[in-house]
């Protein structure tokens, strides 16, 4: 019985840890300092993207859950200057990923997303 309980626990322990890291960078066109960023994850063809809470750059990394395994998705990061939060009306820059499909449990190479300034008026979405 001990073996029965220990083996799955060890297997689970070996499975932990982040599986996809996204590094944010600023484009040279961006003159203002980014203070807030807000992740938005859209599973392929869903009409309701998941919008996560805005996070201060100074507070470091944020972790968001994966979509369902094997489901294609794309990631958008809205960025805002000093102020309160990072609502769509306040965003000054945006970065968008390509369509990604993950197989959970597999190591993923980190990806880099570059924030570029959004034009005024903001057309919304990805550039």
């Amino acid at each position: 019985m001990k073996v029965l309980m220990t083996v799955p626990l060890l297997v689970l322990l070996a499975c932990g840890g982040p599986e996809l890291t996204v590094h944010l960078e600023s484009d040279e066109s961006l003159s203002e300092t980014v203070v807030w960023f807000r992740p938005i994850l859209r599973e392929f063809n869903s009409t309701t993207p998941q919008v996560f809470a805005a996070q201060r750059v100074g507070d470091g990394s944020v972790r968001i859950p994966f979509p369902a395994e094997g489901r294609p998705f794309s990631l958008r990061i809205d960025a805002c200057a000093e102020g309160e939060g990072c609502e769509a009306s306040r965003r000054m820059a945006v970065a968008c990923s390509r369509v990604i499909t993950l197989q959970l449990g597999e190591e993923q190479a980190p990806i880099k997303l570059t924030l570029t300034a959004v034009p005024s008026p903001d057309p919304g979405g990805c550039p």
């Binding site: 996809l20 996204v22 996070q55 470091g60 990394s61 944020v62």
Partner: peptide, 27 residues
């Protein structure tokens, strides 16, 4: 008991995986 332990541990570990967004290069 084994199944319940595995489920609880999996739930505990769940916070440790996902997409990590690192804004370190913005500072």
């Amino acid at each position: 008991v084994a199944a319940a332990s595995a489920v609880l541990l999996a739930l505990w570990l769940q916070d440790d995986s996902g997409i990590v967004i690192d804004p370190g290069r913005l500072r």
